[in-house]
Structure formats: C-alpha cells, structure tokens
C-alpha cells in the first residue's frame, strides 16, 4: 500500500488518483475500502512530511562541482 520512500509529490499524486478512482463507478466495494484506507494513510503521511519539513539550503560553486 503506502511506501515510506514515496516522495511528497508521489504521495499527493497517488491521493489524487485515489480520489478519482473512488469517484468512478466501476470499482468494487472491496477495492474502494482498500483505496479509502490507503488514501487516509497517505494524507496523514503528507501532513507529517509538511510539518517536519526543514528548508535545506546549499551554495554551489561551479568549480567545486567540476572537481567532483
């Protein structure tokens, strides 16, 4: 179901997919229950990711990187 390594973007995309799928008529009740669970978990994870985010700033210099 949910994957801790998924990026925030992937998770948001997945949630969007889930909403669209849940809205469609051609899924079974069981499928929709699974999607529901997954969706709720993902929204919590996204919340947590945003809450815990800390801006990461670095200064690049071209010469340093050339040396790599």
């Amino acid at each position: 179901m949910t994957n801790k390594n998924q990026s925030f973007e992937d998770k948001m995309k997945r949630i969007d997919e889930i909403v669209v799928k849940l809205d469609s008529d051609d899924i079974t009740l069981e499928e929709s229950l699974n999607l529901y669970k997954e969706g709720v978990t993902l929204t919590k994870e996204c919340d947590d990711i945003l809450k815990n985010a800390q801006l990461n700033i670095e200064e690049l210099t071209k010469d340093d990187s050339d040396g790599e």
Partner: peptide
C-alpha cells in the same frame, strides 16, 4: 504554498470520505 497544501490535503480527506460514504 503549504497552507493551500494543507487545505488540499483536507479536501482530499474530505473527498475520500465523501466518495467512500457515497459508495457505501
């Protein structure tokens, strides 16, 4: 914008719940 992201996530939550209820 994270504020609108939180809003978006709330909307998603709401939609998921709503769709689930409708489905049920």
């Amino acid at each position: 914008d994270q504020i609108s992201l939180y809003e978006l996530i709330r909307n998603y939550e709401y939609s998921i719940l709503k769709h689930m209820n409708l489905k049920l």
